[in-house]
Each structure stands twice: as structure tokens, then as C-alpha cells.
Design a protein around this nucleic acid. Structure first.
Lengths: 146, 146
DNA sequence: TTTGAGCAGTTACAAATGTAAACGGAGGTC
DNA sequence: GACCTCCGTTTACATTTGTAACTGCTCAAA
């Protein structure tokens, strides 16, 4: 039953992100627990949250384990993988030529720790060696005159 | 210069991105022209593309100007703003504590020019000064024990 | 002037998403 | 034993998105 191929991560909708984050943070949760936590941020009904839980299980993003007569939910992919996957998915839509600029904007706006910065600097340093002088726009089928 | 007011840009769907990229790249296009270009990548019917065009106009992302009896389409926001907006929107869903890691992943996977790298390094250098040692997880309402 | 090509507008319809009420079974309460 | 409470399951319904056919108007060719 488990077609667990993690090539392209199942699409996670904004509402679903909110549940997933709680599951990832807690490691495992009972629906009641999750509903209580979530309702402190969103005024969603129990039903709504239960539907979202069910859909996440359907999508294969959450797994359940029967404990007593409740279900314990756990994530099937790591938060990091999901985050990277979504980010890369978004970047796939963007013009190759301008992805760099967007990264600059992000790096500028996101709060980074000293550790993050060091890691970024390391990656950049190693990429700098054979980085191209320019990247071609890939918005049009053939050649583009951007 | 303007990049302040981030009044959540209208949501752009994956299909819509494809049209927008063509409009941005060409500056302005007639539907026929756009349809021809797009059909070289996607096997969408004329109708489909016209519907997408209409929806983009409705959303206020495209503007039309009547020329002869055709319409000339132009984007109402810059590609850069749209890209930054979408990227920031995505990052809003992510755990604050792990955004840095995701950026590292992106920087690692995206093809960057020497110029992009230099810009990124500059931004990082300036942020490094007062970067925190750690960022708190913001996935749970109250305190979190990640 | 009849006809057809081109383009915009209208309608359609299924799948996904947001949001939620209603139903049903198992344990605990009186 | 009757009833209430929890929790999972079903059903529901509007909106958005993907995908496209059908309609109608206008210009230009036959």
C-alpha cells in the first residue's frame, strides 16, 4: 500500500503546513493534543483539523499508530526534507537568471544565526570557484532577449 | 528601491507562473503570441491559456490594452517583486529555526553567477555582525522544546 | 456577399483545498 | 443498563485551479 517514493514530495498546502509543523516539533501527537495546540493559533473547528489530518495521512505525509483507542500521528518525512523540497519546488518556477537575486532577497530578510551564516559562507566560497559569469534566462522556449 | 510594502502579492499558481514569465520576458504580448510560445513547452489548448490569461487579469497581475481588436498584455508587478514575494510567502510557513538550513540547501542547489555570489557574500558579511547565536522555533503557540 | 480565420468572451466540469456539520462506536458515569 | 463524552469516519459544500469546448464578433479573402 505504501508507494513511498520520495522523488517529488507531496504538495503541502498552507493549512497543512500548520499541522505538520506541530507534528514535527512534538515528534508525535494525538489528534486531541494537536487540535488543542492548533486552535490557539487558528480558530478552526475540530472537524476541520481532523479533515486535514486525514488528508495528510492519505497523502502519505503522516503515519498513524493505534494507541489504546486513539491514534498517534507521526510524520513520514523530516521537516528539513519537506522544507527543502518545497523551496526547491518554488524555485523551479522562477526564471533561472533571477534566482540569485531572489536568494539575496531571502538571505536579507530571513533571520539567520551565526552558524547559518558560516555555513552559507562556506557553501558560497566553494561555489565561487567555478561559478559562471551569467546564467541564461529560461522563460521562453528558444532564445530570450532579456 | 521599493520593496517595502509586502501586502501579500496575489497568489500565483504554477500554471500562471508560466504565462507570467513569458509576459515579463517579452515586456508585452498579444495573446496569440503568448499562446504560440507557451504551446512549445506545454500542450495546453488555446482555450486553457486564454482562461489563465483572463484569471491573471482578474487577479490584477496582468493589465490589458486594446490594440486594434486584440489585447496587449503587460504585467502589473515586476518579476523580481513577484519572485521575492512568493519566496517570502513560502518562507513564512517554515519553522523560523530551520529557515537558515533551507537557505543553505537552496544556495547549494541553485546555479549562481559570480555576481550573485558576491552579493550574497556582502549581505552575509553585514548580517554576521549582529547575528544571534540561535533562533527560536516558532511552530508551537507557546514554548517549544525542539 | 458568403465564408472562414482569428480572437475575446462564456460556460463547463473535475480535482484540490478550506471549512465544517453529522454520524457512529467504545468507555466511563450514575 | 441508559447516557454522555471522546474520537475517528462520512458527508457536505463553496472556492480555487487545471483544462477545455462552445459562442459570437469582425476582418479579410473568395
Amino acid at each position: 500500500m505504501s508507494e513511498a517514493l520520495q522523488n517529488s514530495i507531496e504538495e503541502i498546502t498552507p493549512s497543512e503546513w500548520e499541522l505538520m509543523r506541530i507534528v514535527w516539533t512534538k515528534g508525535q501527537v494525538y489528534s486531541r493534543e494537536l487540535i488543542d495546540l492548533l486552535q490557539r493559533k487558528r480558530k478552526w473547528s475540530d472537524s476541520t483539523i481532523k479533515t486535514l489530518l486525514r488528508r495528510l495521512v492519505q497523502k502519505g505525509l503522516l503515519a498513524t499508530k493505534k494507541e489504546d483507542r486513539r491514534f498517534l500521528y507521526t510524520a513520514t518525512i523530516s521537516e528539513t526534507d519537506a522544507m527543502n523540497g518545497s523551496a526547491e519546488q518554488l524555485f523551479d518556477h522562477l526564471c533561472a537568471m533571477k534566482k540569485g537575486k531572489t536568494l539575496v532577497d531571502l538571505v536579507d530578510h530571513v533571520t539567520l544565526t551565526k552558524g547559518d551564516i558560516a555555513q552559507l559562507q562556506a557553501v558560497l566560497a566553494s561555489k565561487a570557484v567555478d561559478a559562471p559569469n551569467q546564467v541564461q534566462c529560461d522563460c521562453l522556449p528558444d532564445d530570450c532577449q532579456c
